[in-house]
Write a protein that binds this DNA or RNA. Structure first.
Lengths: 202, 202
DNA sequence: TGCCCACTATACAGATCGGTATACTTTCGT
DNA sequence: ACGAAAGTATACCGATCTGTATAGTGGGCA
């Protein structure tokens, strides 16, 4: 469960930081294809020359956008998990849903950036694809680890833990899209409650 | 629970049908922003003049694409539900998940077109937005109706039915994205199993 | 016959796309 | 004092974007 670092493909000069900050805001708000490099350059107060000197291509900006968001989320979630005692894995599972609710509340209502990016990109050969798939795999791994601790010593063993982990994953992803689409209010609270039932009932 | 018709904004001539068929295939495979009208015209063997004579704008093609897909899904699901006796609401709930699995299997692995479109569009003022939100609201209504029949006569009553419906919705949406992202195999089967537990255990 | 309709063919408009080129300035470490 | 790094300003490239204009073809119908 390492912090998912990646080689520093980009020299993060002050201008590059402004470019990335503007790109993150614009990409998340309007989508990746809908935002051009000219707009990113204008919004960040940087010339296109500088932008391309730092990032080389728009694709690379997209990769940095998603990788940065991924890492911020892992740090955010890690902090929330560390606040729960290690001996209470069930409480840590619930803390994941609480963290998602808090994260979503401060990020706005455009949903999960990875899901959105995946919808736009599609092509598995795109350099941003591993970042997207990586975060989801990491989340499933996290649920699997926690579920293994919850079910430790139970009769059903590993199969039960994997089943529980996937059920938690479904609830969590479902809450992400329900939040983005505004299907019903407080989806993370609902998902958390269903997760609690899974944990106590099984 | 009506079939969600909409006024015929477009005269569906043979050429228009070919345009829409090509647009559906291209939009779903590559995303909406990534596909231009020139490509749609070329792939459908129709001139841009004819395309604009029929649809007026790309936006309208997008609306027809999503509305058509929405209706096909409702018809498909309706057929599956009709195959289950009305007196067995729990079995009908499970039939929804079975239908989604079958639908996804024949549509490919690019996930839910509504979720993907929402990720690209974002702006609630877009004319396609009501179609997207409408399908999700319709699905929640469906689950709510079925949950009400399942819980009929129970002590918890309407609140319990709404809670169950939202839990089913979370599992279903979660399975949709898990399928699209390929997080783990057979997400619809997993979601169905968890739904069954919710139905029998509560 | 004459008209409407669906459609083809081609060209173009204006804007924006991702990306590059030239020339100059500022800042900073040695 | 000097050079490298990082930046600005501006102009440009070919391609593609949504959308429009002009002109013409073929069939069905009154």
């Amino acid at each position: 469960m390492k912090p998912a670092e990646h080689p520093p493909r980009v020299r993060m000069t002050p201008a590059a930081r402004r470019v990335l900050a503007a790109a993150e805001r614009l990409f998340y708000a309007h989508g990746i294809h809908a935002v051009g490099v000219d707009l990113i350059a204008a919004e960040s107060g940087v010339t296109k020359k500088t932008l391309y000197d730092r990032f080389g291509s728009k694709e690379q900006i997209v990769v940095e956008y998603l990788a940065g968001r991924d890492e911020r989320w892992r740090v955010f979630l890690g902090g929330r998990l560390d606040a729960v005692p290690e001996g209470e894995p069930a409480a840590r599972v619930l803390a994941v849903f609480d963290a998602s609710r808090a994260w979503a509340a401060e990020q706005g209502s455009r949903g999960c950036a990875m899901i959105n990016a995946h919808a736009e990109i599609g092509d598995p050969a795109h350099p941003a694809y591993p970042v997207i798939a990586g975060q989801k795999a990491w989340m499933l791994d996290l649920f699997t680890t926690l579920a293994g601790q919850v079910e430790a010593g139970d009769a059903d063993g590993v199969e039960g833990a994997e089943r529980l982990a996937r059920a938690l994953m479904l609830l969590h992803e479902g809450a992400l899209v329900a939040h983005g689409l505004g299907v019903f209010p407080e989806p993370f609270a609902r998902a958390r409650e269903e997760a609690r039932r899974l944990l106590t009932g099984g």
